[in-house]
Amino acid sequence: MWKIRLALAALAPLLLLMPREALACATCACGDPTLTSMGTEQPFAGRLRLATQVRAWSLASGQPRVDNLDLRELRMDLSVAYAPVPWLFLSVTAPLQARSVQDVSLAREGGWGLGDMEVGARFFLFRDREFSANHLVSVLVGSRLPTSVTQTARGLPLSLDAQLGTGSWDPFLGLSYTAYAGDWSFIASATGYLPTRGREDFRAGPSVLSTLAAQFQPSPTWALRLAVDGRVEGESNQAGVRDEVGSGAIAYVSPDVLFSPVTDVVVQLGVRVPVFNQLRGNVRPTPILQAALVHDL
């Protein structure tokens, strides 16, 4: 027995000198200490991110006591993103939703379950340097998928407003630019959606979503972010009948706080406050409350 122990003792220094796979946090791997939400991170080969985001929102449309409609939704997005190579991020998002609609007669309907999933691929076309880039330009392509099932009540389909998705293929194309300057970072992005026909021959209007954001991070563990989020949407169409309700333009001011309680974990808390509303149909949105958790594996 003592011979075995002596042999192991002699081998111990050699085992310590053997090369092993290096493990590093996401910040070390990309050279960027910026706390980022899902979809705004710097890429490196093998980066894997998991995220969940919860949003609570509501809106009213129509004339009070005439054709008013109140819609409320609680939504949780489960996302995974993976970079097989440094210039490509692949992502999948699955929304879990609970939605209710109440019309002017106080009749209420609602549903819950899986909404329309989204798949995307982000291609990084330009970076000023391979490690700890200061400037990034990327293109996003993908589509929403018709994964939501038709919600029913007593065997009959709910109204389109109460459904969790349109049940259509909605391709999208986006462009974004990100800059890093010390404690500050900036992002500008725009993404256009071109929906196809889905449930009940409904086709949502084409839309463009845009974001301008600035983030100040004085510490490795927390940051403040302020964004202006906008949406421009065209008229929808159902069975050849045009509907302008919800079309037009709207903009939100979105303050957020991000903090990292442990390495490779980012928590984001914020609110989106509507400050410009030119949506047709007397649409009156409330602020959107949101919270997110991102984990790099």
Rank of each mutant, 00 (worst) to 15 (best):
F259G: 04
Q290A: 15
S236V: 08
T221F: 11
W184G: 00
A26P: 04
A22S: 14
V66M: 07
I187R: 07
T166E: 14
L6C: 07
L173H: 04
N237P: 02
W87P: 09
P33V: 02
D229I: 08
L140E: 10
R203I: 12
R122P: 06
L160K: 07
R55E: 06
A153S: 07
E235W: 12
S159Y: 05
L88H: 06
T191A: 11
P171S: 02
A162S: 02
E73H: 08
G46D: 11
L297C: 15
S207G: 01
G120L: 06
P33E: 02
L160G: 09
T263F: 05
A45N: 15
T263S: 09
D128I: 05
W112Y: 13
R284Q: 15
Q163R: 02
D128S: 08
A291T: 03
S143M: 02
A153V: 05
R20T: 15
T191E: 13
Y177K: 04
P261Q: 02
L16N: 15
A7W: 09
L90E: 03
D229T: 06
L8G: 06
V208H: 00
L145F: 00
G120Y: 03
R284I: 13
F172L: 00
L14Y: 10
L258P: 01
D256G: 12
G46H: 10
L59Y: 11
E244N: 15
S37N: 05
G192P: 09
F259Q: 04
L258E: 01
R20P: 13
P64H: 03
P64Q: 08
S236D: 10
W57A: 14
L140I: 03
Y180H: 03
H295C: 12
S185L: 03
G248Q: 05
S91H: 05
G230W: 10
H295M: 15
R225F: 10
L269H: 01
A214N: 02
T36E: 14
V257E: 00
A83C: 00
A45Q: 15
A9T: 08
S219R: 12
A107H: 14
L90G: 05
Q290G: 15
S61G: 05
P220N: 00
L175T: 01
V266W: 01
A162P: 01
W112I: 11
V139M: 05
T152P: 03
Q163Y: 05
P206W: 09
S100D: 07
V266M: 01
F186I: 05
N277Y: 00
S148M: 02
L258Y: 06
F44K: 10
L136R: 05
L156R: 10
R72M: 12
V80R: 09
T52I: 04
